[in-house]
Design a protein around this nucleic acid. Structure first.
Lengths: 119, 119
DNA sequence: ATTGAATATTCAAAAATTCGAATATGGAAT
DNA sequence: ATTCCATATTCGAATTTTTGAATATTCAAT
């Protein structure tokens, strides 16, 4: 697997998640499997559009679905992944200290210039 | 903050990360602050394009930068966020058992229909 | 068979993203 | 002052995403 390929599939997952409506859908699905009309009641988004977003999530392998009569039930294929992503986004992360950056950068730069000379 | 707004900013972050080249850049920055030319050496991407991707990451508040002479050093503003995101993506998550879904969905559906009647 | 409810698909237009090419800026060194 | 190096910006074309509108499909119930 090429260096770029390694990230293609991860980018696909992130891209599929990277939409406010789809995030809202996923938040619902974290709590419970839901059929389209249940999602439709919660979100102020037209039904065909919800189906479109669900298709995107399905194609990305993030959700799966199962029919029950005229209903279709959607669920998270890897709930852990979605939960972990949400928790990463919700966490109040500390911000980098700029002085640390300066130190590390100086070191990295010196190493790089040294390598250039020796090669 | 409206229900939709809550997810707008999270979607912005995910969208900014959701590109293979930007993921590669972020993976480098997890290890160390880097200047543009260092990134350019690692990735097979033209320099202006790297600057464009860095601008996207900067606008999303994911990276910051600091000048040193003609170099400009980029760093992660919230390394924890990026690390958590990578670890979520790298983890080998277990997949949902389809029978669990059936049970949960039946329950959720029944509750929903009951609520409709009583209202 | 027909109807109605739940969901999906198609199409088109607007908006956003992507990236190369060319060019610009800004600092260092001569 | 000029040149060189590191980086940024602009512009345009190709592609992709987004969403509404209209329509199609599928199943259940009558």
């Amino acid at each position: 697997m090429s260096d770029l390929d390694r990230f293609e599939s991860k980018a696909e997952i992130l891209k599929a998640m990277a939409h406010p409506v789809r995030l809202m859908i996923l938040e619902e699905l974290v709590k419970n499997p839901r059929c389209v009309s249940a999602i439709h009641e919660i979100l102020e988004v037209r039904q065909p559009n919800i189906s479109q977003h669900l298709t995107i999530l399905r194609n990305a392998g993030i959700v799966g679905s199962q029919k029950d009569g005229t209903y279709r039930c959607y669920f998270l294929i890897k709930p852990g992944l979605v939960k972990a992503a949400f928790s990463a986004l919700n966490m109040n992360w500390p911000e980098t200290n700029i002085d640390d950056v300066r130190k590390k950068f100086k070191l990295a730069l010196e190493n790089r210039l040294q390598q250039e000379q020796s090669s």
